[in-house]
Amino acid sequence: MNFDKPSLSRSRELPFCDVNEAASQVVVMDELDLNPRILTALCKAGLKTYEDVLNLSTADIARSTKLTQSDSVTLKLAVSEKVYRQPKLTAMDIKNGNCPSMFSRKSLSLGCPILDEIFRGGILSQGITEVTGESAAGKTQLCLQLCLMAQLPLEDGGLNGGAVYVCTEDVFPSKRLQQLIKSFPAQHKTERTKQLALGENIYVEHVAEKEQLEHCINHRIPILLERGLVKLLVVDSVAALFRSEFELSEAFQRAKSLQKFGAQLHELASRYNIPVVCVNQVTANMRALLPSDDPFIPALGLTWSNQVQTRLMLKRLPYKLPPSSECNPSCEIPVRSMEVIFSPYLPKDTIYFVVEGDGIRGLR
């Protein structure tokens, strides 16, 4: 599970057409729906490729070709449309998967049919899913289970790839992961599961400073994504660094840094069509006046909340299930809850679950 830095290859194909390749092609004048006067001026100025036109500003084109400002704008617009065309899609095309990869969202199963039923298939790609809650609420357990599920084929609820697990607080729970790996094939009895080296497909990185985290997000993780080695990114946790490295008087600087970090995560999620799961801490709710009010709220305030697509609040409840022979026959099992605080595709709901030796299991 060592996070080694392989050589970087930036040869990823664009979803529609490669702009650099298209721009280097020789312009066929007859294909451009332009006034012949403009096409003649192009030839006289020596602008023979799409790249020649797109690399110049409108003012530079006007000076080189002796065209008017209006003609230069028309020329650049025509070349741009020739190089990059966005396909016409309907909502039904996207739903049926008849669209480029950047429009089709994938679902990552949570590893439990009951949880998947509530989450309508699982965690969606191209967005940030926040898992927040008190200590020992089951946040890390859920993330570990997602890392294993991501390695399954698409037809089994996985993403057919590995995962990156960025630790900013504690040491990565490798012992617990090994425990889950041993029981994972028994839960998912497929030929592919038997062949997977589950532990070798999870890349772990420990960071202790915000600058290290930014370097990891901007440089190291894209290397693995470019090579198709990983399909899931987990950050555990976001609050650890942003709460410790800023003073109370530096609220503006922290907000600006959080916005930048959120934009970087969204860029990775959108470009590579992957789910991004971020663990967050909680803080005391100073507005809790009634006993029914929640005593804790997610940390990092409104600035971070605006970066999150789906927020899940995990809690440890005072209820316990009787001892189970499947887990530890001598210990009662604490019951936990998972509440959907907000989401664009899920209703506000609460589901109860337990953490057992072989992972998280939902309760009806």
Score class of each variant (00 low, 15 high):
E169Y: 03
E247Y: 07
P275S: 00
L180A: 06
R176E: 10
G357Q: 15
I341M: 08
D358F: 08
H215V: 10
L300A: 05
L363C: 08
G127D: 00
A208H: 14
E205W: 07
S183G: 08
N201P: 10
K320M: 09
D71H: 12
M286S: 15
Y345L: 06
C99P: 00
H219N: 14
R227F: 07
D358R: 11
L314W: 03
I221K: 09
L77E: 15
L241S: 00
F3G: 08
K139R: 09
G138N: 11
I217H: 04
I297E: 08
A208Y: 15
E13A: 13
P222D: 02
K5G: 05
Q259C: 13
S24W: 02
S109E: 05
M1Q: 14
R311C: 09
L115W: 07
N35V: 05
S325P: 08
C43W: 11
S174I: 14
P15E: 09
E191K: 15
E245H: 06
E21Q: 11
K106T: 12
F242V: 06
A150T: 08
F353T: 09
S324T: 13
P322N: 12
G362H: 05
D294N: 07
S80V: 02
N285P: 00
A78Q: 05
P36M: 12
Q86R: 13
F252A: 07
F103P: 01
V83C: 06
R176G: 08
T190K: 09
L196R: 06
L146C: 13
L14V: 05
S70P: 00
A197V: 10
C216Y: 04
L232F: 04
I217L: 15
A62Q: 12
A251N: 03
S24V: 05
L233C: 14
T303P: 00
T140Y: 01
P291R: 00
L265Y: 01
L110S: 13
V230N: 02
I118T: 12
D170F: 01
F261V: 13
S70K: 09
R10I: 12
V204P: 12
R85V: 11
F16E: 14
P347Y: 06
D170S: 11
S104T: 06
R361F: 07
D18W: 01
L248C: 06
V204Y: 12
